[in-house]
């Protein structure tokens, strides 16, 4: 069994959400990379190949101007800026000028899932537009295996869809 590279973009990964990472490590099946903000997430996606990527929506901008400008426009509010969604749009959006800067694996929408307290029809529609099918509401439960299950689900869906893993 090969170890799969996976990415978790979550600003609270080392604080409130440490318990979510433990089952992923203990499963022994994944090499988990963590990005704490949108800029870091973008850089990891640009440089690496990940079988599955789970993104939080309310994340800070980091240093990249692309995210900082939205962040400052919305009064430095992580909640309002929804930079996780912005990151997904940058990477997966078809009309963005940045289309060429990411490898094909990063632009593969089947690899993505969203774990966030963000909800609402408009938000779900935005995810659907981007082709991100796996979504979990973090406010919904206390299951420490939530993150692990998401990674497993993304990978299982890809397998079912006939992707070579």
């Amino acid at each position: 069994m090969s170890i799969k590279d996976i990415l978790w973009i979550e600003d609270s990964a080392y604080n409130e959400n440490t318990q979510l990472a433990a089952p992923v490590y203990l499963s022994g099946e994944y090499d988990l990379t963590i990005a704490l903000n949108a800029t870091e997430g973008m850089e990891k996606l640009r440089a690496g190949t990940f079988e599955a990527v789970v993104v939080d929506i309310r994340i800070p901008p980091g240093e990249n101007e692309r995210f900082l400008s939205s962040y400052y426009q919305l009064n430095r509010d992580n909640k309002a800026t929804r930079l996780g969604l912005k990151l997904l749009e940058v990477v997966l959006g078809r009309h963005d000028s940045s289309w060429g800067e990411f490898p094909a694996t990063a632009r593969d929408k089947s690899r993505y899932g969203v774990l966030s307290v963000e909800s609402g029809a408009e938000f779900r529609a935005a995810l659907e537009n981007l082709g991100v099918a796996v979504y979990r509401d973090r406010a919904g439960g206390r299951d420490p295996e939530l993150l692990l299950n998401m990674f497993e689900e993304i990978i299982a869906r890809r397998k079912d869809a006939g992707y070579a893993l």
């Binding site: 089952p23 203990l26 420490p144």
Partner: peptide, 8 residues
């Protein structure tokens, strides 16, 4: 993250 890995 080590604390949670060891504990769990």
């Amino acid at each position: 993250l080590q604390r949670d890995v060891w504990r769990r």
